[in-house]
Design a binder for these strands. Structure first.
Length: 807
RNA sequence: GUCGGCGUGGCGGAAUGGCAGACGCGCCAGCCUUAGGAGCUGGUGCCCGAAAGGGCGUGGAGGUUCAAAUCCUCUCGCCGACACCA
């Protein structure tokens, strides 16, 4: 009857404040964080999976004597609220958001997940975004927030700009079928690139993060080393085309140059004869979408400018081209093309009949005519005084030489771009600055925060009553910034706010934040591998530099759970394949659902939700119920059968299970933890069925099983605990101690191999010496037969596991 | 294309150099039952065999090792990220 007992215990936990975190507790702290969700209002058992993981860990850690911080909140700004408001006419995004939050909260409670709700944060409420704005001002003060005009990504559906991280294959991250457009707009950026090296280097501190996420961040930052080299423009004294290359060793192989269509020098280097064609090409390139331009499938187009540059290493005159395969946003927006040793340049040269000169010889000597670009290392050829040098050494020598002559210098480049944070939306935190005709960009003074959103839902730029203001410095008429911030700014510090969620004087209390932080376990979807996780790392480093936090990385251990699918698709209400928490709680119960979510498969893998699987878990819970409360129903009337389990065997199994389950919960290997609990229940059943006594030791065993199972099935365990006559809550009970001595097996099965093939299994005393093991093995008929008279010439003995006799 | 991950019974999966298939689902046989979508017992990788027993087996091919699902090389398939970053 989960429908009766589950609400009962949920009420009791809430009333007793079971998961309240005490800032002043002397216990060691454990910060257990799950990514705060967008309150979309369609919570299914699929969304529940990572919250159950967090809850299991929180409940165990509490029982183990940790002061656990297990908070929850809402990423409440964002477009779905605006879309819902637009669709439903007079509905305000805030109303919609708060309704969904209430719904979500109810369902989480229904699933038995315990949070310290006193610390709940909602990013769209003024008492939160006031501090989001405060942190923006901090960035501004520290020179990390700036306005710039740049070609930015524009989503025509959401009618707002997007950060690079929010553009996926040239399409909007929220609309996989909508291509982003490029628009030249003046926008706010955060200088995350100033932190590129630290963001990269500190990844090495995150050894408890998934390898995959670290690789993705490394690639996203995309650090490369090389050189910037100036190529003087022929006939324009003083004018140079500066290029960036990672292969200074191939400088002598440059046979032409390429400028990006948007490169500022295009007009200058173009000759009259070529001007019309170049202009036409540049126009066309501008109009093309990112997807068209970035497609590697497409043949490389480009036009000659008629201008020439001088290769500084050999004085050679080489033509300057314009082509859209060179990006204005990376490096210097211009390249030297070395077709012999770069695939893209090779393709372009072949297509446009440009010369190809080999300057790096593969190990077996120069190839002469190249059929494809040679990208590897080798000896330099056709490279003047550098001939014969190995390419690796040549990079250094040529860089030295360039620096000496003042023609170039070593340089480091990143793929990472500054973070564009302006959004042309209503439902976000307003950027707290004022534009004054006399004082320019004026930050809103901190004591005037929050800059609250106007009550009416309408674009801010259409609300003069709101944006018309006075300059905070001179008092003259001024205009507020009407853009709001990317919601990933809200995301970048919410985990700090949980430390002092009602603080009215600062975003977070540094002392409390230093007490609880860093997060010990962070659980959430892999979709944030770059976005949120990179931005938050950046924020924390800035806060560290500002002396506000004492650590440089926010999340010590990260786990990405897999998604729950049904009928092969990710569960969702809109697809109609979702199982709601109400349905689950009303049928098999939240406890069964919780265990099933953990048992269904490896936590990091996507899994398929099936009724049959859920039923298996229901049976397990019922079996535990009977073992604990109705043991008579398990003892058969007739003869005892099954494996004989005596008190000693059971005692050992209990001790082993305590060790295994604790370890596997800690490592988030919940599927195997459940399997161990099932094994223990099976052994307990065998014990009863083969004549085991229900003595004091049995009573202790039952209580151990319940405590181990409690994090997974807390309602049922509380109920059984109470019915056993225990006074306090099992949630407050202590975690069973692992006793290694009790878990040790006195007898072990020793596998006997002959020449690596299994020939016999012997039950022997644990800790047998090698000599005795050999003796025992040779006493076996089967082993002697396999040896067939050939005495073992070699013995490999792995104590308590295996002996291998090699003939 | 580059990088990363994965590939094990009818199914979900377990085992990280040492007994392949824990645990669960499903299935088969039996018991119990007025009934069973309940409970209990036994069985269940494949092949040969009445059995005892034997052989084969972790996508495929090779290798290292006394010993490989696990490590290495190549290859096929699937998934994910990035995708003209010079």
């Amino acid at each position: 009857m989960p429908q009766e007992i589950e609400p009962k215990w949920q009420a009791i936990w809430a009333e007793r404040g079971v998961m309240k975190a005490d800032d002043a507790s002397p216990k060691p702290k454990f910060y257990d964080l799950v990514m705060y969700p967008y309150p979309s209002g369609d919570l299914t058992v699929g969304h529940l999976r990572n919250y159950v993981m967090g809850d299991v860990l929180a409940r165990m850690k509490r029982m183990q004597g940790f002061e656990v911080l297990h908070p929850f909140g809402w990423d409440a700004f964002g477009l779905p609220a605006e879309n819902a408001a637009m669709k439903r006419g007079n509905l305000h995004p805030r109303t919609w958001t708060l309704e969904n939050i209430a719904k979500g909260k109810r369902e989480l409670k229904m699933a038995g997940i315990l949070y310290d709700w006193d610390r709940e944060v909602t990013s769209s409420e003024p008492d939160y975004y006031r501090w989001t704005q405060w942190l923006f001002l901090l960035m501004l003060e520290r020179g990390l927030a700036y306005r710039a005009t740049a070609p930015v990504n524009w989503c025509p559906v959401d009618k707002t700009v997007l950060a690079n991280e929010q553009v996926i294959n040239g399409r909007c991250w929220r609309h996989p079928d909508v291509e982003v457009e490029k628009r030249d707009l003046e926008q706010w950026f955060l200088k995350i690139t100033d932190y590129a090296d630290r963001l990269l280097d500190d990844l090495s501190l995150l050894d408890k993060w998934p390898h995959k996420v670290r690789v993705m961040q490394t690639n996203w930052i995309g650090r490369s080393t090389g050189a910037e080299v100036d190529f003087p423009v022929d006939g324009l004294p003083g004018e140079v085309v500066r290029i960036y290359t990672t292969r200074p060793d191939t400088l002598f192989g440059a046979t032409f140059m390429v400028l990006a269509p948007e490169h500022p020098l295009v007009e200058r280097v173009t000759t009259e004869k070529h001007r019309a064609r170049v202009r036409e090409y540049v126009e066309k390139a501008r109009k093309e979408t990112e997807i068209e331009r970035l497609s590697t499938e497409r043949e490389k187009t480009g036009v000659a400018t008629g201008g020439f540059a001088i290769n500084p290493v050999n004085g050679e005159k080489i033509p300057i081209w314009v082509a859209d395969y060179v990006l204005v946003t990376y490096g210097t927006g211009a390249i030297m093309a070395v077709p012999a040793h770069d695939e893209r340049d090779f393709e372009f040269a072949t297509r446009h009949n440009l010369p190809i000169r080999e300057v790096i010889a593969p190990p077996n000597g120069p190839q002469g005519l190249l059929r494809q670009a040679y990208l590897g290392a080798g000896a330099l050829v056709n490279s003047g005084q550098f001939d014969g040098l190995d390419s690796t050494a040549a990079i250094e020598r040529i860089c030295d030489w360039l620096e000496q002559k003042g023609m170039g210098k070593r340089a480091v480049k990143y793929r990472l771009r500054d973070w564009l944070i302006s959004r042309q939306r209503y439902w976000g935190a307003p950027i707290p600055v004022v534009y004054c005709p006399n004082h320019g960009i004026v930050p809103v003074p901190r004591e005037q925060l929050p800059v609250e959103l106007p009550a009416e839902y309408k674009p801010l730029s259409e609300q003069p009553d709101w944006y018309q203001t006075k300059c905070p410095i001179g008092g003259e008429d001024a205009r507020r910034e009407t853009d709001t911030m990317d919601t990933f700014i809200d995301w970048s510090w919410y985990f700090l706010r949980y430390a002092s969620p009602r603080d009215e004087t600062e975003p977070f209390d540094p002392e409390l934040a230093n007490h609880w932080m860093p997060v010990d376990q962070y659980t959430g979807g892999v979709e944030h591998a770059i976005l949120h996780l990179l931005y938050s790392r950046f924020f924390v480093k800035v806060l560290y530099d500002a002396g506000l936090v004492a650590y440089t990385e926010p999340f010590m251990r990260l786990f990405n759970q897999g998604m729950v699918k049904r009928f092969g698709q990710v569960m969702s209400k809109s697809l109609g394949n979702g199982v709601s928490i109400d349905e689950l709680a009303g049928a098999q119960g939240a406890d069964a659902g919780r265990i099933y979510e953990m048992f269904i498969g490896p936590p990091e893998e996507d899994v398929e939700w099936t009724e049959a699987g859920l039923n298996g878990v229901v049976k397990f819970l019922q079996r535990v119920w009977r073992l604990v409360l109705e043991p008579d129903s398990i003892v058969p009337e007739g003869v005892a059968s099954g494996a004989k389990v005596d008190a000693t065997v059971l005692r050992r199994k209990v001790a082993q299970t305590v060790g295994k389950v604790t370890e596997h919960y800690d490592e988030l290997r919940f599927n195997t933890a459940v399997a161990f609990l099932m094994e223990l229940a099976n052994t307990m059943q065998d014990y009863l069925q083969t004549g085991g006594n229900r003595d004091a030791e049995w009573d202790a065993t039952v209580r151990t099983l319940l405590r181990l199972l409690n994090p997974l099935a807390p309602h049922a365990c509380e109920e059984m605990w109470e019915r056993l006559g225990e006074k306090g809550l099992i949630a407050d009970a202590s975690w069973p101690e692992f006793e290694a001595a009790a878990a040790a097996e006195p007898k072990v099965v020793l596998v006997v191999q002959v020449g690596g093939k299994l020939r016999d299994r012997l039950e022997v005393d644990a800790g047998l010496s090698e000599a005795d093991a050999v003796k025992a093995a040779l006493a076996s008929e089967k082993v002697r037969a396999a040896l067939n008279g050939r005495g073992p010439s070699k013995v490999i003995y792995v104590p308590d596991r295996l002996i291998n006799l090699v003939p």
